[in-house]
Simulated assay, not measured.
Amino acid sequence: MTDWSDPRLPTNQTSSPRQLKRLSRNFAGVGVGIPPERLQQIAMGHAATEDELVDVSFALTATALRSEQRRSKVGRAQRRCVRGAIVFVAILIAINVLMCLGLFLFVLTQHTSPY
């Protein structure tokens, strides 16, 4: 069971007007238009229609799902960057080893006598 499978609206004690505005914008991003004032009323326990409760429940679930997808996308990008950095460092090490071997062979040929 994930954290978005049981959606709950933040209570009035834990939500500021700024948080409610952000929550309202997030809800609008998933297609549910509820003003922050109405969200505050619902959070305080005022009467809400069944449609509003369904909309709030859907919006909470959808925003949590979008957030989880965004976090997984960022995680994949970070892993890809780390993998690329490891490959880059491995290539640098391989080039360094080849150059050292070439220098070593060059020095060996300089110390041999021509006769």
Score class of each variant (00 low, 15 high):
Met99Leu: 13
Phe104Gly: 02
Asp51Arg: 15
Gln19Tyr: 01
Val74Gln: 08
Ala43Leu: 08
Arg38Glu: 01
Leu101Met: 09
Met44Glu: 10
Arg66Phe: 03
Arg22Cys: 03
Pro17Cys: 03
Arg38Lys: 14
Leu60Lys: 01
Pro17Glu: 07
Ser16Glu: 09
Ile86Pro: 02
Ala62Gly: 05
Lys21Val: 12
Phe104Leu: 03
Ala48His: 13
Asp51Cys: 12
Asn96Cys: 09
Gly33Met: 06
Thr14Gly: 04
Ile93Trp: 05
Pro17Trp: 14
Ala85Thr: 02
Pro10Glu: 02
Ala64Ser: 14
Ala94Tyr: 05
Gln110Ala: 08
Phe106Leu: 12
Gln13Ser: 07
Leu108Cys: 06
Val87Trp: 09
Ser16Leu: 03
Val56Phe: 09
Val30Thr: 04
Pro36Trp: 04
Cys81Ile: 09
Tyr115Cys: 04
Leu23Arg: 01
Ser72Lys: 13
Gln69Lys: 05
Ile93Ser: 02
Gly75Cys: 08
Leu98Lys: 05
Pro7Gly: 09
Lys73Asp: 00
Arg8Ala: 11
Met1Phe: 07
Gly45Met: 10
Gln69Tyr: 05
Asp6Ile: 10
Ala90Ser: 08
Tyr115Ala: 04
Val87Asp: 10
His111Thr: 02
Tyr115Met: 07
Cys81Gly: 05
Ala47Lys: 15
Leu103Gly: 08
Leu101Gln: 06
Ala59Arg: 04
Val87Tyr: 06
Cys81His: 10
Ala48Gln: 14
Asn12Phe: 06
Arg66Asn: 12
Glu68Ile: 09
Arg66Ile: 02
Ala85Asp: 11
Gly75Met: 12
Phe27Cys: 08
Ile95Trp: 13
Leu53Thr: 13
Phe104Lys: 03
Thr109Asn: 15
Val56Ala: 08
Ser67Pro: 00
Gln41Phe: 15
Val97Met: 11
Phe58Ala: 09
Val54Met: 15
Phe27Ala: 04
Gly33Phe: 14
Arg83Lys: 13
Leu20Asn: 01
Glu52Leu: 14
Pro36Ile: 03
Ala64Gln: 11
Glu50Pro: 03
Gly45His: 11
Leu23Glu: 01
Leu53Asp: 01
Val32Ser: 00
Gly29Glu: 05
Thr11Asn: 15
Arg22Val: 11
Glu68Gln: 14
Val74Thr: 09
Leu105Ser: 06
Gln40Ile: 08
Arg80Thr: 09
Arg79His: 15
Asn96Lys: 06
Ala90Val: 10
Ala85Met: 11
Asn26Gly: 06
Asp6Cys: 11
Phe88Thr: 04
Lys73Ser: 06
Leu60Ala: 04
Lys73Tyr: 00
Thr49Gly: 15
Ile93Tyr: 02
Gln40Ala: 14
Trp4Ala: 14
Ser5Leu: 11
Gln110Gly: 06
Gly75Ala: 14
Val32Glu: 05
Leu65Glu: 10
Ser67Gly: 13
Phe104Ser: 06
Ala90Trp: 06
Pro114Ile: 00
Leu23Thr: 01
Leu60Arg: 01
Glu52Thr: 03
Ser24Val: 01
Thr2Asp: 07
Thr49Pro: 03
Ala94Val: 12
